[in-house]
Amino acid sequence: MIELMNDSLRFLFPHVHPRARLEVSFVRTLRIPDDGSAYPTPPEMGLYPMVHVDDFEDTVPAHWLERGGVMLPMYQSEALLVRFGGGSPKTSYPFAIKLAAGKVNALTGDEWINHLTPHPQDYAVSPPQEQIDGYCVGRGVVRQFLAMPLGLGYTAEEQLATTAKFGGIQVCAYPMKPEEFQRLSAWADNPFSLTGFSEEQAPFRAEMGLGLGGLLGQDIRLDPFGFDAWDHKNTSRCFVHLVDSALWTAITGKAPPGPAPQAREYNEAGLPYHEKRYAPTPVHEGSRILERLRTVEAP
């Protein structure tokens, strides 16, 4: 089951293991320039507020209700990262996590499927992975997740399938098998085809998808536990709808967060970026499919 608590999705699998719990949060972050340089991790500006789509059945389109899930407001001037948590890295229950935008896998560029694939690895493993800041376009580099209105051709989904059918973000969590977790806990050193839409299904005006932004240095770490460690039968998934911030109030009656500062303003203020370094470990090679996609132009 999935709960929405304190603006985070809490994936719970009490029938698998009492500690099988994963928190997934969506964090507002600075949109970095797309100038060919690979930037370090940009500053964060808090969690996106999230609400159940079911609570706004009078103001969201019918196809959102059909997909279920939650929604959050996003500005085109900011970027989004996905944070995984649930405890300290040493005590967290491990999960395999699939992440997609517009049903395009963020690690491989492949179309969404509900099961895990080991080669190429189409999922992240947390721990050790703490967050994913964008589409994995190469070894050690990602392109930031940027919100773009559906229908303009900028999202990865539209570039790969030439349609804007889904938008949003899709997350699916697979807990580690309990027997594998027991074995790990006992170990002293815990290592850790899209089809076109008809005219009747044209994108809702507030509906956003994720395009590709500037380059960030980030390792997407390969599965350290092995493909057989995951419980492929007990999974939970969630559709996260992205709403244009300008229309958030009209849909929910709530005010969206204020707009994020621009990278130029941030740099002029002399504020820092954070270099995150990890111990040497096998990392994802990135997707040749995603690497070829065009990026979103600066506003």
Binding site: M1, I2, L4, P14, R67, G68, G69, S236, F239
Partner: peptide, 17 residues
């Protein structure tokens, strides 16, 4: 019992997509 309490906790509903 715990399982009965868990049933009334509001879940994020998954739909068709």
């Amino acid at each position: 019992p715990d399982n009965a309490v868990l049933r009334i906790i509001r879940e994020v509903r998954d739909g068709n997509w």
